[in-house]
Simulated assay, not measured.
Amino acid sequence: MTTVGFLYPGHFADDDFPRMEVILDTTIRLVVNRTEPGEDDHRTGTLRQRGAPERLAAGVEELRRAGAESVVWASTGGSCVYGWEGAREQSTTLARAAGLPASSTSLAFVHAVQGLGVARVAVAAPWSEETAGLFTGLLSSAGVDVVATHSGGAATAAEAAAWSVDRLKELVVAADRPEAGAVLLPGNAVHTAAHIRDLEELLSKPVLTANQVAVFEALRLARRRAWAPQLGALFAAREAPPAPAGRTIDGE
C-alpha cells in the first residue's frame, strides 16, 4: 500500500481526491487533511496567509499518523503567490515540518510539464487576471514557455467550484493555441477529475489540472508509478518520458 497526503484548503473540490483514488490502483491511498482556508478570495494577501508556514505545519501530524509517504500542498494560488523560488522554499519548509518529501501544486505543474516533455503551454486560469499572472510568472521563472494565458474571472473558490464541465470547456478552448503542447488548468477548487479525458479529447492535447497534478506529484515523491488513462495523458504513460534537454525544471 502506498499512502500519500494532501493539505487542502477548505472543501471546495476535495471530492476530486476520493474519485481519483477509485480510478487509481487499489494499493494507492490518498489522504486529505483540510486546512483553514481563511477568506474565500484570491487577493495576494489572502493567498499568502493561506500558504503561511505555520498554517501548513499545523496540518501535517494527521498525515503522518495516516502513514503518508509524501505530502503536497494542494493550493495553486497559495503556492504560486510566493513565486518560483518562494514556492520551492515553502515546500522545503513543509518537508522539514512533516519529516516527509513535500511539494505544492504550483511545483507539481512545472514537474508535470517536464514529465510530458512539452515545450510550450497555454494557461486556462479560473481566477482574475492578477492571480493568473502570478501563476504564469512562476512558470516562466521555472523555464516553462507560456504562449497564452486566459482568465476565467472567478472571484472566489466557491464560484470556481460551481463551474460545470461546459464552463471548463469554454475556458480551455479560449486559452488554447496551436503552438501549445498542453493546456494547464490551475485552481484546486475546480472539479476536474471526472472531466480530464473529455477536455483532452476536445483539444486533442494533454490537459493538466490542479488536483490531477497534485496527485501525480505526491506519487512521484513517494516513488510510485501509476497508470490510469482515465486521468489523462499525464497518467497514460507506463514509463516516465525523458526530461527535455537543457535546463532542468527544478533547478538541480
Score class of each variant (00 low, 15 high):
residue 176 D to S: 15
residue 19 R to H: 12
residue 182 A to Y: 07
residue 243 A to W: 04
residue 76 T to N: 05
residue 12 F to A: 11
residue 142 A to L: 03
residue 215 V to N: 07
residue 68 A to D: 10
residue 156 T to H: 04
residue 205 K to S: 11
residue 136 T to N: 08
residue 110 V to G: 09
residue 79 S to H: 04
residue 51 G to N: 02
residue 240 A to I: 10
residue 87 A to H: 00
residue 22 V to E: 14
residue 103 S to A: 12
residue 46 T to W: 12
residue 75 S to K: 04
residue 140 S to K: 14
residue 45 G to E: 08
residue 82 Y to T: 01
residue 78 G to S: 09
residue 210 A to G: 05
residue 197 R to T: 02
residue 207 V to N: 07
residue 109 F to M: 07
residue 96 R to Y: 01
residue 122 A to N: 11
residue 92 T to W: 13
residue 248 T to C: 11
residue 128 S to G: 00
residue 127 W to D: 05
residue 179 E to H: 08
residue 234 L to H: 04
residue 38 G to F: 05
residue 245 A to C: 05
residue 139 L to W: 03
residue 200 E to V: 03
residue 44 T to H: 07
residue 37 P to S: 09
residue 232 G to F: 03
residue 58 A to Q: 12
residue 101 P to W: 08
residue 84 W to E: 01
residue 172 V to P: 03
residue 58 A to G: 10
residue 247 R to I: 09
residue 54 E to K: 11
residue 162 A to I: 01
residue 202 L to M: 07
residue 45 G to M: 02
residue 178 P to N: 09
residue 198 D to A: 15
residue 112 A to Q: 11
residue 6 F to Q: 07
residue 19 R to S: 01
residue 252 E to C: 07
residue 119 A to S: 15
residue 49 Q to I: 11
residue 235 F to E: 00
residue 89 E to N: 04
residue 182 A to M: 05
residue 54 E to I: 01
residue 248 T to E: 14
residue 193 A to L: 00
residue 108 A to C: 09
residue 186 P to Q: 10
residue 153 G to I: 13
residue 50 R to F: 14
residue 9 P to G: 08
residue 46 T to K: 14
residue 206 P to A: 02
residue 219 L to C: 13
residue 154 A to Y: 02
residue 149 T to L: 13
residue 14 D to G: 04
residue 229 P to I: 02
residue 120 R to H: 15
residue 7 L to E: 09
residue 181 G to S: 13
residue 101 P to G: 13
residue 22 V to S: 14
residue 22 V to M: 09
residue 210 A to F: 01
residue 249 I to W: 14
residue 42 H to Y: 15
residue 110 V to L: 02
residue 205 K to E: 13
residue 46 T to H: 14
residue 124 A to Q: 06
residue 171 L to Q: 06
residue 82 Y to S: 08
residue 212 Q to G: 02
residue 212 Q to Y: 04
residue 182 A to F: 12
residue 242 P to Q: 13
residue 136 T to A: 15
residue 194 A to W: 01
residue 98 A to R: 08
residue 185 L to W: 11
residue 94 L to N: 04
residue 57 A to N: 12
residue 18 P to H: 13
residue 106 S to G: 15
residue 137 G to M: 11
residue 149 T to V: 15
residue 232 G to L: 07
residue 200 E to R: 01
residue 224 R to S: 11
residue 230 Q to T: 10
residue 210 A to S: 15
residue 113 V to P: 02
residue 215 V to F: 03
residue 139 L to E: 03
residue 40 D to K: 10
residue 217 E to R: 14
residue 110 V to Y: 03
residue 103 S to C: 09
residue 60 V to P: 03
residue 214 A to W: 04
residue 192 T to W: 01
residue 228 A to G: 10
residue 132 A to K: 05
residue 161 A to Y: 00
residue 27 T to Q: 14
residue 182 A to R: 09
residue 32 V to K: 03
residue 135 F to D: 06
residue 28 I to D: 01
residue 152 G to T: 00
residue 177 R to W: 08
residue 94 L to I: 09
residue 111 H to G: 12
residue 126 P to T: 12
residue 72 V to L: 12
residue 100 L to A: 15
residue 106 S to M: 07
residue 7 L to M: 14
residue 16 D to C: 10
residue 92 T to M: 15
residue 25 D to P: 05
